[in-house]
Design a protein around this nucleic acid. Sequence first.
DNA 1: AAACAACATCGTAATATTGCGATATATAAA
DNA 2: TTTATATATCGCAATATTACGATGTTGTTT
Lengths: 110, 110
Amino acid sequence: MGLTKSEIFTDDQNKLASLFKALGHPARIAILQHIIHQKACICNDLVDELGLAQATISQHLTALKNIGIIQGTIAGKSVCYCINEQTWKEIQAEFNALFSQDVKVNTCCS
Amino acid sequence: MGLTKSEIFTDDQNKLASLFKALGHPARIAILQHIIHQKACICNDLVDELGLAQATISQHLTALKNIGIIQGTIAGKSVCYCINEQTWKEIQAEFNALFSQDVKVNTCCS
DNA sequence: AAACAACATCGTAATATTGCGATATATAAA
DNA sequence: TTTATATATCGCAATATTACGATGTTGTTT
């Protein structure tokens, strides 16, 4: 099928999964790293930096915008994309909530 | 296409993306949470808990095994899946390396 | 206004993922 | 040894993702 059965999971599970999913592509990781490093970016910079077509980069930027981790502001002919600090911290907190848990291994696996 | 151009990204970017990707499905989040909560689990528990077929659960377990975040040990007729503490900590560290960065927003976006 | 520049969106082809029934495998129980 | 139980794997259909050329949109420059 290829259709995730979202309705059988909790909102939290769906939300967390969609955050992970949005970060689950090397181009989107590269874009994030570039934005963090450059403090901002425009799409054409990325087209030059990465080896992907402009349309493709734009799609990936939209995926990142959809989870709110970046935001774009029109800057003349270009668009300036930045990290959304608020969302960034929220995502960080959600990941921490999962990964900061105590994960003692049961005796059966040791 | 549908084919990610892995060769144009760094190993680190591909690795990190594949970690995120493996966690980017609500069933796999639910499975992880169940394992953490129960300290262990067998596949049939999950088939009862979640509303997915046994074959589907098995596939998701394999996806989680592939990134090493869980490991399975044969326990009689069943398989006992547990968190792999070592890998768990490594993944946690990789996520922290990304998210602990300072993300000052450029003036153009504020 | 016309030409250009930077993105976004559309349409489409190739590939990947999700989900499940059927079947295979491996261990336990009778 | 037959039967049952637990899980893995195969094969397939439906849907999603990735990538890109073409085109649309918006703002800039001349």
